[in-house]
């Protein structure tokens, strides 16, 4: 048991120890391991798979764990055209995700309906979900998706205090 009136970092005494706020630490953990829930619907899903493959390694950003379970994932990457028939499924899956959760709308079809302006296509997934990052392209290059992930990470780190989202009984 050591009591010390010294506050701050003294490397001789404390060694490799960093003092910070709990919120910042938790957000830093979250930022570097956003586990995506790939809602891979159409052609953008192939670029999503390419981003996860070995050339454009999404694992560098901690996001290679593409769990298809919504309960275990943080960000839903909606990649591909969302039709009305699929929209209720996307909404249901999104509702099952646990807080905190984010959404990346990848590609033109997910952002705005893309070039399919027809009777069965939802004109943008932001009509049913709150979207954090939109990625343009048809399909966007994997590097664009990685850029979106970095932008999402900046949003995560700037999030409000995380204590509020921990529902303590």
């Amino acid at each position: 048991m050591r009591t010390s009136s010294e506050i701050g970092y003294n490397s001789k005494v404390e060694g490799d120890l960093v003092v910070t706020r709990l919120d910042a630490a938790l957000n830093w953990f979250r930022k570097n391991s956003v586990w995506p829930m790939p809602m891979g619907l159409a052609c953008c899903a192939i670029e999503l798979m390419a981003a996860g493959a070995s050339r454009y390694d999404i694992s560098r950003f901690g996001a290679e764990v593409m769990r298809f379970s919504p309960r275990q994932s943080d960000v839903m990457i909606v990649s591909g055209t969302v039709t009305y028939k699929m929209a209720r499924v996307v909404k249901r899956v999104y509702d099952q995700m646990t807080e905190p959760k984010w959404v990346i709308a990848m590609g033109a079809c997910a952002s705005t309906g893309g070039m399919y302006r027809s009777y069965s296509v939802l004109q943008g997934v932001d009509r049913i979900l709150p979207v954090n990052v939109y990625v343009a392209g048809c399909p966007p290059r994997p590097e664009a998706l990685l850029d979106a992930l970095i932008k999402l990470q900046e949003q995560v780190i700037a999030k409000e205090p995380v204590i509020a989202t921990l529902k303590v009984a």
């Binding site: 009305y84 028939k85 929209a87 209720r88 909404k91 309906g113 302006r117 027809s118 009777y119 296509v121 939802l122 004109q123 049913i128």
Partner: peptide, 11 residues
């Protein structure tokens, strides 16, 4: 659409 409440004409 059941459970989603709308389909709109593409604007």
């Amino acid at each position: 659409v059941p459970e989603l409440a709308f389909t709109q004409a593409a604007p």
